[in-house]
Simulated assay, not measured.
Amino acid sequence: MSIKSDALAQQGSPRYLASGDPALADYYPAWLDNLADDVTVEGSMLDGAVQGADAARTIVVGIRTLYGTSQEFHFAGPCGDNGWLEDYIAQVDGKPIGCVALMTRNAAGQTQHIVASYRPRSSLLLFARLLGEKFAGTPLANYFISESAA
C-alpha cells in the first residue's frame, strides 16, 4: 500500500515550509507498534544509535509529544522490499522542522532500524536540546546533549 501526496512545496521554498497532505491527516505510524526487541534508532538529532524496543519507543513518542498537533505528512509509504518512508513537517517550539525517516523491517516483518534526517539545522539543534532536556536524568539524555553543551 502506498500513501502519496500531491502537496508540493512552492518552487524555491524548502519543503519543511509547505503544508502536509490533508489526506494523510489521520495517518498513524503502524511500524511503531511492531518493533523488534533489538531495534535501533539513529538520526541527525542524536549522537550514536539507540538500541532496544523500549528506548526506541520512548524516543519516538517523546519526539511526537514535542510536535504537539503540528505534525503533517507529505508522504508515507513503502520504500524498497523491506522499508517504509515518511516525509513530514512539524513545529518544535514554534520553529518549522522537516523530517525524512526510513524504517526497515527484518525477516519477521518487525521494525528493525529507524533512521531520521531533520532540517533546517537551526531547528535541528533546538530540537536536540529540547529532547535532551525532556530525557534529562535518564540514559537517553546523553544521546541528545553533547558533553561540551552540557
Rank of each mutant, 00 (worst) to 15 (best):
M1L: 14
S2Y: 03
K4E: 14
S5A: 09
A7T: 14
A7K: 15
A7F: 09
L8E: 13
Y16K: 07
Y16P: 06
L17A: 05
S19L: 14
G20E: 12
G20S: 00
D21V: 04
L24H: 15
L24C: 08
L24Y: 04
D26F: 14
Y27K: 02
Y27I: 10
A30Q: 15
W31Y: 12
L32I: 11
L32A: 14
L32W: 04
N34T: 11
A36T: 05
D38S: 12
T40M: 03
E42T: 09
G43W: 01
D47I: 03
D47F: 06
G48F: 02
G48A: 02
A49N: 02
A49F: 04
G52V: 03
G52C: 03
D54K: 15
A56S: 07
V61N: 06
G62W: 03
R64Q: 10
R64L: 14
T65M: 04
L66S: 07
T69V: 00
S70H: 08
F73Q: 01
F75M: 11
A76I: 04
G80D: 07
D81G: 14
W84I: 12
E86L: 10
I89Y: 06
Q91K: 13
Q91M: 10
Q91L: 08
I97G: 07
C99Q: 13
C99H: 05
T104P: 01
N106Q: 08
A107T: 14
A107W: 04
G109W: 10
Q110S: 02
H113C: 05
I114G: 00
S122V: 14
S123D: 03
S123A: 15
L124M: 08
L125R: 12
F127E: 00
F127S: 00
R129H: 14
F135A: 07
G137T: 07
T138L: 01
T138R: 04
P139A: 03
N142T: 12
N142R: 13
Y143K: 02
I145K: 06
S146K: 11
E147K: 14
S148Y: 06
A149C: 09
A149Y: 00
